[in-house]
Structures are given as C-alpha cells and as structure tokens.
Amino acid sequence: MKTHLCELLGIRYPIIQGGMAWVADAALAAAVSEGGGLGIIAAANAPADYVRAEINKLRAKTDKPFGVNIMLISPVVDEIVELVIAEKVPVVTTGAGLPNKYVPSLKAAGITVLPVVSSCGMAKMVERAGADAVIAEGGEAGGHIGDLNTMALVPQICDAVKLPVVAAGGIADGRGLAAVMMLGAVGVQMGTRFLTAEECSIHPRYKEKIIAAKDIDTITTGKRLGHPVRALKTPFTRAFLKNEGDPGMTPEELEAFGSGALRKAVQEGDEKGGCFMAGQSCGLVKRIQPAEEIMRETVTQAEDILKGAVRWVK
C-alpha cells in the first residue's frame, strides 16, 4: 500500500501516530518512525526545553521523518513554534484551534503542516492558510474531541477541500484504515492503538486498562466547559460528570478538579484519580506489541480487505 500521504511525508505506511499529551514522547515517536509510520512528539503544555530534549532523544534513535504536535492553547506556543523551526522538524501537526498565523513561518522553514480539524469550515480555513493536508478527527477519538463522527466528517471534509485528508477517530486496525480510504482519506492517525505499543512509556496499569476496556467503556466529560474529553470510565471521570451536573460547581472549580488527572494516569497509573484518555476503539485493542508490528498488521489487513472488496462489484 502506498498513498499520497506516504509520498508527502516520506514514510512507508500511511499511518500517523496521534500527538497524545504526556504519552507521545521520543520513545514512542522514534519507534513509530523507525517502524515506517510518522511518529509524533506531543508538545502539549510542556516547556520548549522539554520538547527540545525529546527531539534530540528521537534523533539519536532514528533518522526517519517525524513530527511534533503543537497544542495551540499552550501558554508557550510561540516558543514551541520557534523551536520546531530552529530544529528543522520535518512535520508539524496542530491541535486545539486554527494554526493559521503560524503556517507561513512553518512553511517558510520547509516544514510540512497538518492541522487537526473537526469541521469543514476549519478545513477550508487551514487550506487557505497553506496547510499541506488535514487530519479530520471524529468524536470517536480519545482526549479532546469534536462533535462530528469520523464516518460523517471525513467525506464532507474530502468534498470541502482539495488537500489530502487523513482520517482519525475510531480507527485501530486495518478495517478502519480500509474504510476511511473508501471515504476518500489517504491515511490514518491512530492514538489509542499505540497506547499499548511496547515502546509506549505509559504506566503498565494504563495499558492493562486499555486492553481490558470494552466498546462501552469510554465516556465524554467537559462538555459544559466547551472542550469535551473522551476517557475511560473510572472513578475520576464519573466524579467529574457528577460535578459537571452540579450547578454549584463553577467552571473554574471544574477545571481545577480535572487538572493533573491525565498525568496521574500516565505516570502513576492512579486508578482513582487518573484520567485515562482513550478512544471508542479501545475495545479493538487486544495486546501489547511493537509499534512496527501494529502498523504492519494494520496495513496488511487493510490490503486484504481492499483486494477482497472487488467481489461486491460484479
């Protein structure tokens, strides 16, 4: 399988690893890139020094293309943009808003820019700003999510822009990859499936919880705050939902209640206080395996399905 995304990014498999905050570090990103996909280091809210150190760690492990995900509402977003330009990072993905004001300087530095979008309007805006492709992420995804689902969002975005479209949200195997290619996508971004990559450094309990999770085990919190988050149903997310429904809780109190919960899940595996972000595809994630194997399995399965699909048309 070779798609336009492979050519655009210089990768073997049309698979991008999600820029998961606290999760997507140099170890995971290097394994994905070395394995033939596009590994992503998540800058999230981290200081530039941390991100620079992760970039250096990744470069010590692989010379393959990789990316940095820039979270646009980070307090240090300007410094991160300067850093990726100075470091000549090959690819940037962006999340949590419109990256338009940064696109010209990123492009001038020769960086390939792929914003994550959740509506046709956003996709058109970033196309106009000069983005190279868009990642259309549906609400099945884990972490911060939009409203539309992948099935409805991807073909509409394919119609709205001329840019290549990468699909994300709800995709964890070759069936998902084959399906979104039928919708017009040229590749996928997967997050949840990579949580159980051997090279992913999250707490072992986080991985166990993902493997144990069934179809109905995620929940969306934070709708009242205007930025919904999908995570596993745990004592923390249940308590958050309860607080969200309590009119006595101010938005500030709610934010404070949620603060630090993702870090507790990732670093401590804290089953009570942790927020284990995960997508609806968690029920498809069955075991711990190397990142390269995850991608090879996904692409092989998609190839078989796509070859077999011709039987429907006679």
């Binding site: 808003g97 509506s119 309007g121 956003m122 058109k124 805006m125 205007g226």
Partner: peptide, 16 residues
C-alpha cells in the same frame, strides 16, 4: 459568542 452558545467551530462559520 459564549452567551449565544456559539462554539469555536460556529464562530469560524460566522467569520467565513
């Protein structure tokens, strides 16, 4: 926009 229950995606539509 918050009072009008317009989220960031709605605002993009208005801007367009």
């Amino acid at each position: 926009f918050e009072d009008m229950e317009l989220d960031s995606l709605d605002v993009i539509e208005v801007v367009m």
